[in-house]
Design a protein around this nucleic acid. Structure first.
Lengths: 205, 205
DNA sequence: GGGGAGATGTTTATGGTGTAAACATAGCTT
DNA sequence: AAGCTATGTTTACACCATAAACATCTCCCC
């Protein structure tokens, strides 16, 4: 026990979470560009200096927020990977989920992968990122187990898979691909194509 | 003739370019995070309001800068693609150049692909981006010509190739891959692996 | 070649931001 | 009940983006 209340409430309740929640909403609705700590405080109904009791600075809040984003993505991927189907089908499904999740919250995506936050002592994104890689590693190893994939360093194959779907997702979220792919249906089909390509690439024989 | 001097000089010389140059340097050295228009003006030795005579606002300057970045990347890729070797070798080389170019200037990369700049009337990144896609399209079509690649919509295959190397580059620049890959040699090898995977994936048979 | 006129740069002003410090208070602990 | 600490507020400061008013340079036209 650290000596706090048992209910989890104090002055405000728990501001820390309220701030993260508010920040998440602002990020989703207005993007990362004009994102201001003072807006967050306003949205949470506290003074503009209150956040400093819970986060060392703006970057710390963003880092925490980014962590939540990684958790969300990790959960989505894990769920998609938890299927009894073969590794190929799983890879396709995971790719689609990856793209969907990323597109659903572009601001969060840019926060997570834009290195807007410089680690600075705090380990930064590294652990969260490696937990994502772990998911792909699991899929690859499962593929090995049934002899589906080429005999390579599994970490390498996992990175190949991740790179591929990540690239597609980033191009899509960066509004850099054809306007055609703004349509989610089209993008979904492209995701499938990309995934199939990965599979061809890493498959045995 | 618009009625300006013939030498291209005016008060300062040509501030517009000086500003872009200074901005580029700041971006390279200090990243996009604390990037300020006033710093740019200072670095160019003019008052903090001077840039507004050449760019509508900060975003406009960043857009122009990003355009230069796209030109640079495009030139590097074009050069790498201009080889007499087969499409497979070219694809490998282009991937390595892509990753190198991106890693050489992370700030620029984030500017180009981070959508820090919201198009806003100006067409934004779209044309520049499509000129990049054009390079891949050329490679793919050359591959078709010698019967190297699977019979697919070439645009689709080009997007697959781009996605893949872009993803690797973004993960690398986001400091999200293993620390091991901070070593350029290792990263280079990974780039080759990823490229080979693309090739396997899109190759005929 | 002299006089606008427009392009370029500066000064000044305004409202916003991140952050630090001094202050106030709520609620636990003894 | 007293006091300590966590939490929140006020005030203050330096910086930023942007706009408006002002100054000046250069070119074009008569």
């Amino acid at each position: 026990m650290t000596g706090h209340s048992t209910t989890g409430h104090y002055h405000h309740g728990d501001l820390r979470n309220a701030l993260l929640q508010a920040a998440g909403k602002l990020l989703r609705e207005q993007g990362i560009v004009g994102f201001s700590l003072r807006d967050v405080a306003r949205a949470a109904g506290v003074s503009h200096a209150a956040p400093y009791r819970h986060f060392r600075d703006k970057a710390a809040l963003l880092r925490a927020l980014s962590g939540l984003g990684f958790e969300h993505l990790h959960a989505a991927l894990t769920e998609a990977a938890a299927s009894r189907r073969g590794p190929e089908q799983i890879l396709i499904e995971v790719t689609r989920v990856y793209v969907h999740t990323v597109m659903q919250n572009p601001g969060m995506t840019r926060l997570m992968f834009g290195t807007v936050i410089s680690a600075e002592g705090d380990a930064g994104n590294a652990p969260a990122a490696s937990s994502i890689l772990e998911v792909f590693l699991g899929i690859i190893k499962a593929g090995f187990a049934v002899g589906a994939f080429r005999d390579r360093d599994p970490r390498e194959l996992a990175l190949v898979a991740w790179s591929t779907m990540h690239g597609l997702a980033m191009l899509a979220v960066g509004e850099v691909v054809d306007a055609k792919y703004k349509d989610m249906k089209e993008l979904d089909a492209l995701a499938r194509t990309v995934a199939e390509n990965v599979i061809y690439g890493i498959s045995r024989s």
